[in-house]
């Protein structure tokens, strides 16, 4: 089995989880959501690379299987605990310093809009060491730079073990950029998420 001992102390400091996923995303996210604890308290902010005209199918689909509410990020709206948020198709998602969502139609970053780097970088500046960043399956290099910045700001970084990912490139680039990341398979990632016990004092600021 794996050990989280070096970073265990940080668990209770976590306030927010950001996840970046590209090719192969539907099935890994389904698996994670199905096994998520119903009393999972942290907000999960997700950039999934989607077709620019993607409708709301994925939101409806994930709402069926996730134990907590699933919705699109809305401009200027605060981040609530115990919710899963997706960046809307064809918009970048950013976090403002007052912990609200911001959206932009700026140029694509790493050929992607939404870009994982854009969410991760802006979230890391706001949440610093209270942030957990996860890179899952994908066939490009988006997210590597953002994950690195999360680590630089003292956050926790996890990468889906490239050997177990449907598309290894994105996890591989992320690991190269942030070698200190934990490389875990999907069920280990779920165990990790379910083991987070946020301090109520961290979450209370949302209410």
């Amino acid at each position: 089995m794996y050990s989280f001992s070096p970073i265990q102390d940080n668990f209770s400091a976590l306030e927010v989880v950001v996840i970046g996923v590209s090719a192969g995303g539907m099935s890994v996210l389904s698996e994670i959501f199905q096994q998520l604890r119903p009393d999972f308290r942290l907000p999960l902010l997700i950039v999934q690379h989607l077709h620019p005209h993607q409708g709301n199918f994925h939101i409806e689909y994930f709402s069926e299987i996730a134990p907590i509410p699933v919705q699109e990020m809305e401009e200027k709206q605060p981040i609530h605990p115990a919710r899963i948020y997706f960046a809307p198709a064809n918009y970048h998602a950013l976090i403002e310093s007052d912990k609200t969502f911001a959206l932009s139609v700026d140029e694509k970053v790493n050929y992607a809009r939404p870009s994982i780097d854009v969410l991760f970088e802006t979230a890391s500046e706001v949440f610093q060491h209270h942030l957990l960043g996860i890179i899952l399956t994908g066939a490009n290099r988006d997210g590597a730079k953002g994950l690195r910045q999360i680590a630089d700001f003292g956050g926790i970084t996890i990468v889906q073990d490239p050997d177990t990912a449907q598309f290894a490139a994105m996890p591989q680039f992320a690991l190269e950029a942030t070698p200190s990341s934990q490389a875990l398979n999907l069920s280990e990632i779920v165990v990790f998420l379910n083991s987070i016990h946020p301090k109520l004092s961290n979450l209370s600021k949302y209410w």
Binding site: L94, A102, D106, V118, T122
Partner: peptide, 9 residues
């Protein structure tokens, strides 16, 4: 202007 985007620019 909203700061997060402006800051990236």
């Amino acid at each position: 202007y909203a700061r997060a985007s402006l800051k990236r620019r």
